[in-house]
Design a protein around this nucleic acid. Sequence first.
DNA 1: AACGTGGCATGCCACGTTGCAATAGCTGCC
DNA 2: GGCAGCTATTGCAACGTGGCATGCCACGTT
Lengths: 333, 333
Amino acid sequence: MSASLRQVAERAGVSIRTVSNVVSGFALVAPETRARVQAAIDELQYRPNAAARHLRGGRSGLVALAIPEIASPYFGELAGLLVDEAQKRSWMLLVQQTGGDADHERRLLDGVRGQVVDGLVLSPWALSPQDLRRRPDAVPLVLLGEQDADGLLDHVAVDSVAAARDATAHLIAQGRTRIAAIGPQPHLENGTAARRVEGYRAALAEAGLPADPRLEIPVERLHREDGADAMRRLLEAGPEIDAVFCFSDQLALGAMQTALRHGRTIPGDLAVVGFDDIEDGRYATPALTTISPDKAAIAREAVGCLADRLDGDPAAPARRIVIPHHLIVRDSA
Amino acid sequence: MSASLRQVAERAGVSIRTVSNVVSGFALVAPETRARVQAAIDELQYRPNAAARHLRGGRSGLVALAIPEIASPYFGELAGLLVDEAQKRSWMLLVQQTGGDADHERRLLDGVRGQVVDGLVLSPWALSPQDLRRRPDAVPLVLLGEQDADGLLDHVAVDSVAAARDATAHLIAQGRTRIAAIGPQPHLENGTAARRVEGYRAALAEAGLPADPRLEIPVERLHREDGADAMRRLLEAGPEIDAVFCFSDQLALGAMQTALRHGRTIPGDLAVVGFDDIEDGRYATPALTTISPDKAAIAREAVGCLADRLDGDPAAPARRIVIPHHLIVRDSA
DNA sequence: AACGTGGCATGCCACGTTGCAATAGCTGCC
DNA sequence: GGCAGCTATTGCAACGTGGCATGCCACGTT
């Protein structure tokens, strides 16, 4: 067991309170006393006890990140940025995986086990807007992704409609006319996929291209495997295509592999655009053209939101923070 | 603020202690009392206070994972498995990034800030064996990767010498004779890269092939970028090669992109084998042949080690756990 | 009737910290 | 000389929980 304030106090011949004052940097401590206390602290290798501070002060110094899965490159990259951003504010990051399970997400909303954390960054997957709204007052919460909870919960996200429109418009500008979309998720309440469909259709409409439902390929999840599978279905079903917009880079990478194996050339026969700008895409062959959300900004704003609620007004009106994005043109389209 | 034992006790008309007994599942509580207490718990939505339990019991229910960077696919996949494994034992996982910085790693060794965690899983990068040995008694620690701290600290790792030999031997079996190695890190104390060099050379020697120092390409880090850069140097320096063994899949993916851009075909002109079996490699084009460490086993054993020290003998002799690996042959070699 | 036993419930304390209020010592000023 | 005003230090209480010891009661045994 590590040394406590009491032991340091005995060693330095002062009261516990004075040691506490030295540790917390309180000004009214005589330089000579401070030095003596500091010496005792160093000798005993005193370190403040986090549990006691947490109990006394109500702050644990922990923030939870709840995402479907950390192994996903997009979430991995985001988690890295969040860890750094949290560290800037002397927080540590706890990772929770929901596996995209609604019950699991609901439980997290109700409060990470025993209020261990000071705040929660949640990337919901399966939760409905009602679920999000019906929430007991617990720790501050920030949602990642666009959610239909405006006015009630803070959230941080790119404008998916605009981003999807940009991606599709780029394909159109390259002269593509038979553009598929891989990634709709009609089985989920989560609105992100729906918004990307909306942007995709809007771009087609703006260019006067017809919307063909056979070109909208739904997926169960957003893994490479799902992208590969979707491309297989698309190629086997037979509608002619010359481009595909995938709702995530992982879907795009899976789709590209399948297309290449089926003998299509990229971008010759088929142009591909992804979404997320994960590092994989940058080093894929061909390198993946993609929508790049400003992930550092997402991390910064999400942590900033929590900080504002913790240090500022916890009941301030909910904010909807829109993160900039831009199209990165590489080899695939 | 959430309800406390005291409030539940008042509500149920019993003592705090009795509520505590109900919560902790202590047997000697009359069924009728238990029911009344349970009702009060439900009404008040009582949840045990983690801070108080931590202070009282000395256990936080948290385990830290300290790795160079979570955004790295290998560590991302591993972190996901560790989160799950920790959850099985009702632990939550805290992620710390060292950025491969020796000072940062040292500080973590000295104890994650204020003993917030019950255990630490550390994947050292820059620490020397001396650093690892000189460590005050703190929370239980498990090292990932082969470290020269045998007998003093638990560690969990694949047999890198054997794995590198397997990879190289596979290339030789394919008829390759000019086999480069991308990944040595002579500037680091960390012994993993050195062991992979050793296995690589051993396989060459066993096949009677000469070891050519010009074919061993050192890298600063293990990113795709470093692999791409290494391949560039290799191709520009001119030694003839027909295969390359990369010490990580990320290096391999970067190297493959560069080789393809330089007009080499894979596996025709150049066979490539990686190490780690990250999902990227599976969906790369060509799909990457690689050494696959049993990551689930790493996670299981690492968490198991911590559990054994926490629930068993903290002073038991250090264990060296060797994780199985196998070669997965795909398209690249 | 006294005693022992076992089931059930309770009170006290300590874990290490910090907010609050109070105290002790000192200086300077009328 | 006394008092205000300041600096430096201290004691007490409380955060919510669980270990320990003990109290209380009913019932069965001697």
